[in-house]
Design a protein around this nucleic acid. Structure first.
Lengths: 283, 283
DNA sequence: TTTCTCCGGTGAAACGATACAATACAGGCA
DNA sequence: TGCCTGTATTGTATCGTTTCACCGGAGAAA
């Protein structure tokens, strides 16, 4: 491997000069243009690549950000991953990705990885089931900023980026209301998810605000820990059985909404002609 | 950050001893058990994490493998990625992932990244449209083994892992043949893909071997560069128009197969009752 | 002439680990 | 006592960079 020393020797300038030139930072301005082009030419000729280990070791900047995803095979994660990478690139940073593989017990290992690689920041993408605020605080202790995407951690000073669930469902029901729907069915999310509660609150408060009555017969709830296509179908069928006169349905999320559309179609209803359906998640 | 020096100072042993103990390799066996447990205790107490930059710089081993994916948001890539990570872990290696973002011009940048990070090997996941054998050979020049997943590069000594297209389609048509089908329709892949040709050859040679006649009227080809759902539908409709008596259909890939199922269903045929459909890709 | 101030560039000390050769020491043996 | 051997441990050079203080010389100001 060709080192900066080789470039220095071959070009006739000192290691320091070569370093300044090749880093192309403000310091490079102190070097004459002639020297700069010459050094670049030699570096290119020799095929020089800076050794990032040496660089990071000395400069104490790793130029990397750690990203923890809960499941790399989940398109939700990879979409965000791409966004992260694209935002990082212009400033020369690079994401180091670790995958929880949908297994909470891996969290420690993942963070260890990132700690050893001296990441300058951490983005954790996970629902609270996977996160461990105490482990994350290890980063804070070392002055490494950490941020959570997806859900706010309770009892933690960590910043997080979350969906405004309440505003989202408010928009949904408002839209249906303005279209003239009054018999609206609902499939609430699993009780254990904070999102379920928040999304439901948006619906409820809007209904109150405009004086819309929510018929309890038209409200069902997902029993499992997660929304599933199967349960979405089943709950929709149950709604049709209970009170088939609804003209719109608000589902907890898009998986459930897709399932609902299927169940409605199978029951002979056309969507959206006979029944409007709204989901949540932008899938 | 606490360094190995701190652990050495606190424990009363030398840096070398601490290093040997903490690496827990064969060299650690030369250290007495008492010393070992003591060093470990101190390291744990101080919260010591080895600096991977320093380690890699000195040992000239990065313990990483570079992975180039053509599109991180593609489930195909992430599934393989997970497999790679799981195979790497037991030996202490870690994948450094770079994303081509479906854009060939990024290839150079991605490889640069990996070169600078001194990966000990490279796995490139991409179709030949994205790969540049010459760029990849830069790794070979530096004694970094490189492997391609997905398609063999022509004129390149690089090893690759590929699907046995011919055997695959052979299996498909054989299955249909043994079920008694004789009027079988085909949708061939785009001409520009090597896979298309190979998959077609598997079908053709099997037909020849058993004396099955392939009616040219029942063979259509995808015109675009890639298979698309839309074109799959359209070609299936065309087949139905040309000669509606076929009882089975072999599609180039699963996207096309899904589209075919849709088109057949819309045309009033039941799958697989009225018409069997085979795809390719295990989607 | 002397002193200052830039300009363009240099030398050597880190950074935190590993590798390698070297050493201290206890015990065995003559 | 002196020598040898093997075990447990250590000192120091080194990996390839960046950082920081410094330096020679040319021109300007005193």
């Amino acid at each position: 491997m060709v080192t900066i020393r080789d470039v220095a020797g071959e070009s006739g300038f000192s290691v320091t000069t070569v370093s300044m030139v090749l880093n192309d930072g403000p310091a490079a301005q102190r070097i004459s243009a002639r020297t700069r082009t010459h050094v670049w030419k030699v570096a290119r000729k020799l095929g020089y690549r800076p050794n990032l280990f040496a660089r990071s070791l000395r400069s104490r900047r790793s130029q990397t950000v750690g990203v923890v995803v809960f499941d790399i095979t989940d398109p939700y994660c990879t979409q965000i991953l791409r966004g992260i990478e694209n935002h990082l690139r212009p400033s020369g940073y690079f994401p180091i990705v670790t995958d929880l593989q949908d297994d909470r017990s891996q969290f420690h290992r993942c963070l260890d990885m990132l700690l050893g690689r001296r990441v300058e920041g951490v983005i954790a993408m996970a629902n609270p089931i996977y996160l461990d605020a105490q482990l994350l605080s290890e980063f804070a202790d070392r002055n490494v900023p950490a941020v959570v995407i997806g859900s706010a951690l309770e009892d933690s000073p960590l910043s997080s980026v979350v969906v405004d669930n309440e505003a989202g469902t408010r928009l949904a029901i408002q839209h249906l209301y303005e279209l003239g729907h009054s018999r609206i069915a609902f499939i609430k999310g699993p009780k254990i998810l904070v999102d379920s509660m928040q999304r439901w609150r948006g619906l409820e408060t809007f209904a109150q605000d405009v004086g819309l009555r929510l018929d309890p017969k038209l409200v069902l709830e997902i029993k499992g820990r997660n929304s599933t296509y199967a349960e979405g179908c089943q709950l929709t069928q149950e709604l049709l059985k209970r009170s088939p006169d609804f003209t719109a349905l608000v589902a907890f999320d898009d998986v459930t909404a897709c399932a609902a559309i299927r169940a409605l179609t199978q029951a002979g209803r056309q969507v959206p002609k006979d029944c409007s359906v709204v989901g949540f998640d932008d899938v």
